[in-house]
């Protein structure tokens, strides 16, 4: 009999190899991907979230757990029916042009992935044109931008302008973040959402995209 709590524990421990082997075992036992996801992988990640809130786990452990979780997700994704896959909400994320900071952005990216979003992480130093073409190609519902420097913050505005020029602005929700970015700045450049930290970022994306259900 497959023990779901072992899989959850492997996620909590951030043990990628163990997550992989237990997920494989679950698949071979004939357990449905939805059950593996809900009872094993995500329940482990929920526990990680609780431990993090209680300050018993910290950012590095959270990220290591998210990595382990994603290894399991990658294995069960192909098993979901085609239609449910195409229903997955897509997010294009990146650090804006001229900026090579990626820790905060990668954290948001990882966490979005762990929440079941299809994340297209464009990495760092992403030009407005690259954001536009990635959003167009994937049919994303959300563009998420990060900037760590006050000097690269204006590129966020340029990217929003580029989305507008290419007729994409009303098709995507735009969320911005990064240490120097403020709510006031986000509003001024016409972003749809702003988050001061990665936990809020995930919540904000979830909230913004709940309007894209149709």
């Amino acid at each position: 009999m497959f023990i779901f709590s072992d899989l959850s524990r492997a996620v909590i421990d951030g043990d990628t190899e163990q997550v992989k082997s237990l997920t494989q075992e679950a698949i071979e036992t004939g357990i449905s991907p939805q059950e593996i996801l809900d009872k094993g992988l995500l329940s482990g990640m929920d526990e990680v979230g609780k431990l993090f809130q209680a300050q018993e786990m910290f950012i590095p452990e959270l990220m290591i757990s998210a990595e382990a979780l994603n290894a399991g997700l990658d294995m069960i994704k192909p098993l979901f029916a085609e239609e449910s896959k195409s229903n997955k909400k897509k997010v294009v994320i990146g650090t804006v042009q001229g900026d090579v900071h990626d820790i905060g952005k990668s954290l948001v990216s990882l966490m979005l992935g762990s929440k079941g979003f299809q994340v297209n992480d464009l990495g760092i130093d992403v030009s407005p044109a690259d954001f536009v073409s990635a959003a167009k190609a994937s049919g994303a519902q959300c563009v998420a931008m990060s900037a760590m420097l006050t000097t690269t913050m204006p590129v966020m505005k340029k990217t929003i302008d580029a989305l507008l020029e290419n007729g994409l602005r009303d098709k995507v929700a735009v969320i911005v973040g990064g240490a120097p970015v403020t709510r006031e700045f986000a509003e001024r450049i016409g972003a749809d959402g702003y988050a001061p930290d990665y936990l809020t970022a995930v919540e904000t994306v979830e909230k913004l995209l709940s309007n894209f259900d149709e």
């Binding site: 910290f58 950012i59 590095p60 990220m63 290591i64 990595e67 090579v100 990626d102 820790i103 990668s106």
Partner: peptide, 15 residues
């Protein structure tokens, strides 16, 4: 160069 240390085991072990 250019990587990060957040997701290294070393970080979680020693923090």
């Amino acid at each position: 160069p250019g990587g990060n240390f957040i997701t290294q085991r070393h970080t979680a072990t020693h923090m």
